[in-house]
Design a binder for these strands. Structure first.
Length: 194
DNA sequence: CTCTCGATGTTCT
DNA sequence: GAACATCGAGAGG
């Protein structure tokens, strides 16, 4: 097991968002069950200057984890029923994070199907879907993903720059035009689902 | 395949 | 009150 360390996250957010493509996201529940998938879609949220970022209006109870050290999970609840998973980046005090938007299931697929109550390709191709598939909820908010327990990341597949598609982020109509149009969403072309 | 719409509860104005 | 870093069902092409 080769868990990504804090230095991996303590860098430019857009760089980390691209570097996370092809990494393996691992979720361990209890002793027997390991769920995992390869990250195929991410979005960068770049601190207080970014009007699409939750930290834009300053620190609150919800976004406090983003203001802390990199390499922690920022999990929040939205739309009355969905959790979202982010990984905190940059130096402590600079509130940035990468939203994990889609994974390709690798391990524990039967368990994921049971949690999602469906089968097939659409198991984890959305930010709320992958949280449901991997049993990620608010109890993991603030979790240190460099510890190698419960939830962590590993090297898995090398993704070349040529096979990464950059596009505008999804669902941020509330943001300023300059941030709505920024190409801060990254997909692996060959694994592209949407 | 596309589009529209309702669900549901926390957070912010 | 309104908005929300969404999803799935249902209608239509």
């Amino acid at each position: 097991m080769d868990v990504l360390d804090r230095k991996f996250y303590e860098r430019n957010t857009r760089y980390v968002a691209r570097a996370l493509l092809g990494k393996k996201l691992v979720r361990k529940i209890g002793r027997g069950v390991t769920l995992a998938g390869m990250i195929v879609e991410t979005e960068a949220y770049c601190g207080q200057e970014d009007s699409a970022c939750h930290a834009h209006r300053g620190q609150t109870a919800r976004n406090a984890v983003m203001f802390g050290a990199p390499g922690h999970a920022y999990v929040y609840f939205t739309y009355g029923m969905h959790y979202m998973l982010n990984l905190v980046t940059e130096k402590e005090g600079n509130p940035c994070a990468v939203l994990i938007r889609a994974i390709m299931p690798l391990d524990g697929i039967k368990e994921m199907e049971a949690r999602r109550k469906l089968k097939g390709a659409r198991l984890a191709d959305g930010p709320a879907k992958l949280c449901q598939a991997l049993a990620i909820d608010k109890s993991l908010n603030g979790w240190d993903v460099t510890r190698g327990a419960k939830l962590w990341l590993e090297d898995f597949k090398k993704i070349s720059a040529k096979s990464i598609l950059a596009s505008p982020r999804i669902g941020i109509n509330y943001a300023k035009e300059e941030h709505r149009n920024a190409l801060w969403r990254y997909c692996v072309l060959s694994e592209k689902i949407k």
